[in-house]
Amino acid sequence: MSETKQRYDVVVIGGGAAGLSGALALARARRSVLVIDGGRPRNEPASHVHNYLGREGTPPSELLAIGRAEAAEYGAEIVRGDVVSAERTADGFRVVREDGGVVEARRLLVTTGLVDELPAVDGLAGRWGREVLHCPYCHGWEVRGRAVGVLAVNPMAVHQALLWRQWTDDVVLFRHDQADFTDEEYERLAARDISVVDGEVAGLEVTGDRLTGVRLTGGTVIPREALVVAPRFTARSAVLEGLGLRPTPMEIGGQVVGTYIAADPAGATEVPGVWVAGNVANLMEQVVGAAAAGLKAASMINMDLVEEDTRRAVDARRTPFSAEAERRVTERVLGDRRHGLQETR
């Protein structure tokens, strides 16, 4: 679908769960909405979406297709492409796409998500979302009772191992390149029968297109059927940085584990007229949470527009013979025919 307008009430940058949820709510509020989607959803490698009430087990691509159809049913327009820049104008924002297309918006909702940056271990990227996992609530049930490894890459490694122990009694924690654990941490791990393997992990062993083990630098292979890895979560924030919004580092135990764009609970940023929702603002948000955040941001954006529309109406009422009031009357009465009248003058 291609855009039919040059100016919209809201341009949504990012067409994942947060963006489409926001677009749906705004379109139902009779706002003109354009969604620009780069087509690279974070959860594309995953086979199914979980913990989404009413959509449990739905493939990610199917969920997005349903969302696009629902938003479009109420008039939202959706185009595929990357946004290369967004800048403030006198009365809103100017958005430029990679293909050269330019549109204007009164408000922006940015839901560009994040990038999962994996450790430099051979084979991780190729199994990401299959047997190389991160979130136990997303994938724990699917590997319940199986041999699971946890790769220590940040200070939360012990917590991860203890958490995944809920889904299986066969958990091995690979210390990899992290500092040694404390006596208290070893005691907690031992109490839950979690083994610790010293030495750096060099790569994965795959047999018949299935993960079968984790290989250490010395050549030893520890049999495993799944490996838990905590990636670095990096917000897709280039467009927002052009508007003056810089990513905020998220630290755990003094180590940066990701970046996000700071916003209030409804998604409003420090730049007036710009909202964010989903993983670009909350690194730990799951799909259903991202959709809820998109809805919340959309309701606040609509209210903000209502306030602006009301201020303009009050100003027009107070000065009924202004140039602005004349323009509005002309548009209401003549619509597109006004252009022909202007050309004959």
Rank of each mutant, 00 (worst) to 15 (best):
G258T: 05
A226S: 09
G145P: 03
E285L: 14
V12D: 11
P136E: 06
Y52T: 05
V121E: 02
V103E: 05
L24V: 04
P247T: 09
A281R: 13
V153I: 08
K296Q: 13
R106M: 04
Y74H: 13
R188F: 14
R165M: 01
V256A: 10
D82L: 15
P119V: 06
V314F: 13
V280G: 00
T207C: 06
A86Y: 10
A263G: 01
P265M: 05
E131A: 13
R97D: 01
G38Y: 02
P60M: 08
A17K: 05
T220N: 07
P59N: 09
A262C: 06
L34R: 12
N43T: 10
G335S: 00
Y8G: 02
E3G: 09
V153W: 05
R232F: 05
H134C: 10
S299W: 12
R165I: 03
L189Y: 14
V83A: 06
E87L: 07
V11D: 05
M1S: 15
V276P: 08
V150E: 01
T217M: 00
V84D: 02
L240A: 14
V121K: 03
V172Q: 08
T259C: 02
A313W: 03
A46S: 14
W164V: 06
G129H: 06
S61P: 04
E187L: 11
S322Q: 07
V102E: 13
D309V: 04
A125Q: 07
R192D: 13
H50G: 04
V33W: 09
G57W: 03
R232E: 11
R338S: 15
D91M: 08
G278D: 09
E104A: 11
V121W: 04
L283W: 10
F321L: 14
T168C: 02
W128T: 02
V132A: 02
L189W: 14
L243I: 01
R40F: 13
G278F: 08
R232V: 06
T344A: 13
G203S: 07
M250G: 08
A325Q: 10
G15I: 03
V229G: 04
A147W: 03
E131P: 09
V256I: 08
A179P: 13
G208W: 05
A298C: 10
V132H: 01
I36F: 04
M303N: 14
E185R: 10
A226P: 04
H159E: 00
T259L: 02
T248Y: 05
T319W: 13
T217I: 04
G219N: 01
R55G: 06
G126M: 00
Q255P: 01
W167T: 08
V197D: 00
T220P: 00
